[in-house]
Each structure stands twice: as C-alpha cells, then as structure tokens.
C-alpha cells in the first residue's frame, strides 16, 4: 500500500532534525543505517546503538520510556518493525507520552544489501492508528520536521511512518568503544536527573 513519493525524505537529514528538535532526547537507533547515521552526525551520550536484536528496537525504547520522564525517540526500520509488529499493541497499552517512534521506511533490508522488505504490503501508520497510537505518514524532509514536532508534543506515544530514500553511508563510521562503555555511558547519561 505504501507508495513512495519521488522526493522521499533524506534519512540522514531527518536524523539531524531529530537531534535539533529534541537535543536532550534519549535516541535508540535500529541496527544498520540508522545507527551509522546517528554515530556520524553526533556520538552523543544519550544515543544507544542497537547492533543486533533486530525487531527489538521499539521494545527497548518502550522499556526506557516507562522508566524516565525524558523524551525517548526510537529510530526503527520497516524490516525491523515488521518482525515484531505486535510491539505496537504493547506500546499502546502503556501509551507513554514521552515515546516517539520514527520508522525509517525505505522498503528494504538496507544493511544486508537493499533486498526488498514486505512493507509495500503494509500501511505502517494505519497499523499504528489501529492500535490507537497517534500516527503520521510522511514522505518529505519538510513534512517530517512538522510531524516530529507534533509527535513530541502529543500527549501519548506517537509513530511517524517516514518514507525515506534507501541510503548507505559511503564509509561506516568507526565506533571504537566497548559494549560496556556505551551501555554505561547511556545509562549514566539517563541518570543525570534522577
């Protein structure tokens, strides 16, 4: 059902907009392109980069959102979310107002070589709405900027289905940290106001 506009949004620029709009947000990024882009834009203490556990990105953000008052933004992917579509029902049950789910919908398993996903058969925004989540379906960087600001303001969990151009960084940014460093840096940064 998804039909991507010719001028689908620029994923990298949209992640920059997330950081500009909510500079203090905890950002949990799906494995692959979202994580690489986020690292490349800014390796913030409040970033957590999934590097496995495909399908678990939004569930992880939900667990954090019910444990902090701060904004939590998740950069998920269409392939990852389709693996665990049931998580939207779990999110809806708690409906935390500090949780914003951005689905970088490129219609492909980008990291493994851009093989198509089945998201062409699913209107992700409509599924979220069916789970009683507030949702937006957008296809340009400009529309995303408005939708993201509204989603953050919304009094409840919100999902943005963002049609993006398939994109792979030319060089993978290096992240020369141990897992234990990243997890403790993130956890400590979240503890700042506890």
């Amino acid at each position: 059902m998804s039909t991507y506009p010719e001028d689908a949004a620029d994923q990298y620029r949209c992640i920059e907009l997330v950081l500009e709009t909510t500079p203090d947000a905890a950002v949990i990024s799906n494995l692959g392109t979202s994580s690489w882009s986020l690292i490349d834009i800014e390796d913030r203490e409040r970033n957590f980069y999934m590097n496995g556990a495909m399908g678990l990105t939004t569930a992880t953000a939900l667990g954090l959102a019910i444990s902090t008052d701060d904004q939590v933004t998740v950069l998920d992917g269409d392939g990852s979310l389709l693996m665990s579509l049931g998580v939207l029902s779990t999110v809806a049950e708690r409906d935390p107002s500090n949780l914003t789910i951005v689905v970088m919908n490129n219609g492909a398993f980008e990291t493994t070589g851009r093989q198509p996903t089945l998201s062409k058969n699913v209107d992700v925004g409509a599924v979220a709405a069916d789970c009683s989540l507030e949702s937006w379906s957008v296809g340009s960087t400009e529309e995303f900027a408005d939708a993201y600001a509204a989603a953050v303001e919304h009094d409840g969990a919100a999902l943005i289905d963002l049609a993006v151009e398939p994109f792979t960084p030319e060089d993978y940014p290096s992240l020369d940290y141990a897992h234990s460093h990243i997890k403790h840096r993130f956890r400590t940064a979240m503890a700042g106001d506890r």
């Binding site: 569930a59 019910i66 993130f186």
Partner: peptide, 24 residues
C-alpha cells in the same frame, strides 16, 4: 510491581533492557 504484558516474549528482553537503562 510495574507489570508489562508483551505480545511476544522477545519484546520483554527489550523492555527490560530499556528499563535497566532507565535505572530500574
């Protein structure tokens, strides 16, 4: 207790990780 019913058990692995990141 703060109980979270999940739709599939692997979600719980994520939920508990996120909760631990949040200090719980």
């Amino acid at each position: 207790f703060d109980t979270v019913l999940v739709s599939r058990e692997e979600e719980a692995i994520g939920v508990l990780a996120g909760a631990w990141f949040g200090g719980r």
